[in-house]
Nucleic acid binder design. Structure first.
Lengths: 318, 318
DNA sequence: CTGTTAGCGCGTTCAA
DNA sequence: TTGAACGCGCTAACAG
C-alpha cells in the first residue's frame, strides 16, 4: 500500500545511499583505450550483454590511450564504489596505477596483459594467429616478409612481434631487423611503414600488419606508389574489423584484406563471465584466470604468390 | 600533516558519500544509441573534452536503439545522482520516459530532437545539408532522384526526408512516393533500397542516402548488379564517416563517397558547453537552448552528370 | 587551524 | 507488518 503511494509520488530510491550503506553499487567500470576504434565497442557489447543481464550497470570510460586519463578515470570509478573494473587494451602502467588497482575491486584485463598476476586476463590467441598468417604466406612462397608492429606500449604488439620472429625461426627463415616497422595501429602508421620500406631500399614480397588499419594504410601508400596488391606485394591485416558490424568507412580500391578474425564479442562475454565469478566470490581471489580465444584466418584479396624476383622496378632477373 | 599520513595509508575519500551529502556527483550520464556506429564515439569525445576539463566524469551507456534499455539506463543514472544527462540520438520516447526526464537533472539532446521543449538540443543543419545535396545533383542535371530514409523512429530521418521533399518542390520537381525507400542507417538497408528500386522497375539517375553506410550498401548492390557509379547512377551519403578517424573498414572498389560533412566533435563540444551552463545555473531552466551546426558538401567520386536516357538497359534514346 | 556535531537516504537490527 | 535507532563517509556549520 505504502509502496503504491510512493510510486504515485514519483519516489525513486537512491542508489548512492544504498551503495554507501551496503558497499556494493551493482555497477562495473569499463576502461577502453580508444572508443573510436571499432573493435572496442564490439568487445564492450559482449561485456554489457553478460553483465546487464545480471542487473549490473556498466560505466564506460574512454582513456584515449592517455596514461593520465587512465589513472584519473580508474580513480574516479573506484571512488564511486564500482564493484569491478574491466580494462580493455589499457597501456602498460606505472607502479602508481598498479598500486591503485591492488587495493581496488576485482579487475579483469582484456586484450592486453595484466602487469599483476592477481588479475584475470582474456585475449585472443596471438601465437596461433601469427602461425596461421606465416603459414599462409610461406605456403605462397614468401620468404622476405616485413612486419608492422602495434603501439610500443601495448603488450599485444610485443606479443605479436615476438611470435612473428619465433615463427620465422621455426621455419629457418632469418629474422632481419630492417624488415620490422614501428606502427601504432592506425592507417597513418601503415603509410609510414611503407615509406620506411622504400627509404631502406629493401625488397619484400609480403608484409604483415598488426591490425587492419595499418594494413589498409600500407596498401593505400603502396598503390599510390604504383604497386599492385597482391601482385607486387602481399599484405595481411589483423582483427577482421570489416566483420565488426554493418558499418563501413573509407572505401579503398580493393575488395577485402586477408586478415585474422578474432571474436570481439566473445572476448567481451568471457570477460563479463569472469567478472561475475569474481563478484559472487566463487573463485579464490588469489587464483588468476585466463581465457585465450582461438582465431581464424580469413583469406581474401591482398595475398598471393610471391614474385620470383625483386618486386620494385630493379633489374629484372634473368 | 594529517593529510600526509592519510595518503601513506592509501586513504581515498568516497565520492558516493560526498554525493549523498552534497547532492552533486560531478558526473554526467551520456546515453548513446549505438556505440558501434563511428559517428557516436566522435561526438562523445567532444562532450568528454569539455566536461572532463571541468572535472566532471562521464559515464557512457549504450542503449542499442532499445527503448527498454534506454529507460533502464536513464533510471539507473538518475538514481546514481548524475548531475546531468546527455542523450545522443535517442529514440522518440514513451510518456513514461519523458516523465522520468521531467523530474530529472538537466538534459541535453544531441542529433535527435527532444520531445520536450524544456530540454536543450544540438544538431546539424539538416535543411542546409539537403539543400546542398539537391543543388549539387540538380546542377548535374538530375531530376529523378531517389531517397533512402533513416530509421523510422529517428527525428533526424524524418527531418531529412521532409527537407528533401521541400527542396524538390521548391525547384518544381514532382515528388514521387515510389522514389522513397525505407532505410535504417545500415549498409544492409542501402542494399535493400537498391533491391526495391529494381523491384519497382523505376529508373532513377541519382539516389540520396540518409547516411554513408546506406550509400555504401546501395553502391555495393548496384555494382554487383552490373551498374557503374556514377556513370549509371549517382549516389550521395551523409555524415562523412570516412573523415571520422584514422580507421577504415570494409574497402569497396570506389575512392570516396560524395557526402555531407558534419562536425561530430563540434556537436559534442557544444553539448558539453550547454551542459556546463545548465550546471552552473547561468541560464534559466525554462529557457531551452538550441545549437544548429552548419555542414559542408564534400564532392567526391560517386556523383556525376545525369544520363540523358534510362539508366538501366532499356531502349536507347534518340 | 582544529574539533565537534548533525544529517544526506539508505539497510540493518532489535522491539514492539 | 511496522517503527525506531544506528551508521555507512562525507560536508557544512559552528565552537573553541
Amino acid at each position: 500500500m505504502i509502496e503504491e503511494v510512493a510510486r504515485k509520488l514519483g519516489y525513486r530510491s537512491s542508489a548512492i545511499a544504498r551503495a554507501l550503506r551496503t558497499q556494493r553499487s551493482r555497477s562495473i567500470g569499463v576502461l577502453v583505450a580508444d572508443i573510436t576504434n571499432p573493435i572496442f565497442p564490439q568487445i564492450v557489447k559482449g561485456i554489457d550483454e553478460v553483465l546487464s543481464a545480471e542487473g549490473h550497470t556498466i560505466f564506460l570510460c574512454n582513456t584515449d590511450e592517455n596514461p593520465k586519463r587512465q589513472y584519473a578515470l580508474a580513480s574516479s570509478l573506484i571512488d564511486r564504489n564500482v564493484d569491478g573494473l574491466i580494462l580493455v587494451s589499457q597501456n602498460l602502467q606505472s607502479d602508481e596505477f598498479n598500486k591503485l588497482l591492488e587495493d581496488g575491486p576485482p579487475c579483469i584485463y582484456v586484450n592486453r596483459r595484466p602487469p599483476n598476476p592477481h588479475h584475470d586476463y582474456v585475449g585472443s590467441d596471438n601465437r596461433q594467429a601469427i602461425e596461421l598468417l606465416v603459414d599462409h604466406l610461406v605456403g605462397l612462397g614468401h620468404r622476405r616478409i616485413g612486419f608492422v608492429t602495434g603501439s610500443s606500449n601495448s603488450s599485444t604488439a610485443s606479443e605479436r612481434r615476438h611470435h612473428f620472429q619465433q615463427e620465422l625461426e621455426k621455419r629457418g627463415i632469418p629474422v632481419d631487423e630492417r624488415y620490422m616497422f614501428q606502427g601504432d595501429y592506425t592507417a597513418e602508421g601503415g603509410r609510414r611503414a611503407f615509406a620506411q620500406m622504400i627509404e631502406r631500399g629493401i625488397d619484400l614480397t609480403a608484409v604483415m600488419a598488426s591490425n587492419d588499419f595499418s594494413a589498409l594504410g600500407f596498401i593505400d601508400a603502396a598503390q599510390n606508389h604504383g604497386l599492385s596488391i597482391p601482385e607486387d606485394i602481399s599484405v595481411t591485416g589483423f582483427d577482421d574489423t570489416a566483420g565488426v558490424n554493418n558499418f563501413m568507412t573509407y572505401p579503398l580500391p580493393i575488395k577485402g584484406v586477408t586478415t585474422i578474425f578474432q571474436s570481439k564479442r566473445e572476448l567481451g562475454t568471457l570477460a563479463g563471465q569472469m567478472m561475475l565469478r569474481r563478484l559472487d566470490g566463487s573463485v579464490s581471489p588469489q587464483e588468476p584466470r585466463q581465457a585465450i580465444v582461438p582465431v581464424a584466418l580469413r583469406i581474401r584479396d591482398t595475398t598471393g604468390p610471391a614474385k620470383a624476383g625483386p618486386s620494385m622496378g630493379s633489374v629484372a632477373t634473368g
